[in-house]
């Protein structure tokens, strides 16, 4: 499945990555920012004062936080904090992770970049969560489940896995049922764009 391989590395064109970095993070301003008062709708002043709390998208919060003198300090979203991590530790399979955040894993990996003492624990917790939920995803993918809401229960990363697994399973079932079918030309061979003789002679 091509969409999945695009999301492996956050590259410039990865839609998952773009949507994930849209996520709002609550930040606190550490330096007075002149003429940026309009960012905080509640204040009337022209400048953005120290200590103002506001929500910035991840793509903006990160460069502002990473600089030597951080311009904003970042508060990690509550779904990554200890209380929520405990829930995941207890039983990750019962959680509707998509409701917490559709890009739970991706965002968690980005949070690693903030200077926060919890970061390493967050990654460990992500890994553990993924491990224990994998059985769930695999079972759903390999057994016929006719629940249309299933898609909306899984966060993006798991959903891509689920759809790929489901597709393979359907193909296998199809084959087991009716035996052989026509082998299609592989996509890479189609993309070669071999010139047809008819086109060639027309020129």
């Amino acid at each position: 499945m091509t969409t999945l391989s695009y999301s492996y590395m956050p590259d410039y064109f990865s839609l998952t990555d773009i949507l994930c970095t849209e996520e709002r993070i609550s930040c606190k301003v550490e330096v007075t920012l002149p003429r940026l008062g309009f960012l905080d709708l509640s204040s009337e002043s022209e400048d953005l004062k120290i200590g103002t709390k506001l929500e910035l998208p991840l793509w903006l919060a990160q460069p502002l936080n990473i600089a030597r003198e951080s311009i904003v300090s970042v508060d990690i979203p509550k779904t990554y904090k200890e209380g929520y991590r405990e829930i995941l530790l207890a039983d990750a399979c019962t959680v509707v992770l998509n409701k917490w955040n559709p890009y739970y894993y991706e965002l968690g990996m980005y949070l690693r970049k903030f200077n926060n003492r919890d970061c390493e624990i967050i990654i460990d917790s992500l890994l553990l969560t993924f491990r224990s939920r994998f059985r769930l995803v695999m079972d759903w993918a390999q057994n016929p489940v006719s629940d249309p809401t299933l898609n909306s229960l899984l966060p993006r990363l798991e959903r891509d896995l689920f759809l790929a697994g489901r597709k393979a399973k359907l193909q296998l079932n199809e084959w087991l049922k009716k035996g052989s079918n026509v082998i299609e030309t592989s996509q890479s061979a189609v993309n070669l764009k071999k010139r047809k003789r008819t086109d060639y002679e027309l020129d």
Binding site: M109, L157, G165, A168, L172
Partner: peptide, 28 residues
């Protein structure tokens, strides 16, 4: 029959793990 589910899942696990090593590539 376990393709592509298992290889993809392992890839994703590696991806999450390598985020901890600080090796993850990013546009930032």
């Amino acid at each position: 029959s376990i393709r592509p589910l298992l290889p993809h899942a392992l890839d994703q696990m590696l991806r999450i793990q390598s985020a901890n090593m600080g090796e993850i590539n990013s546009q930032y």
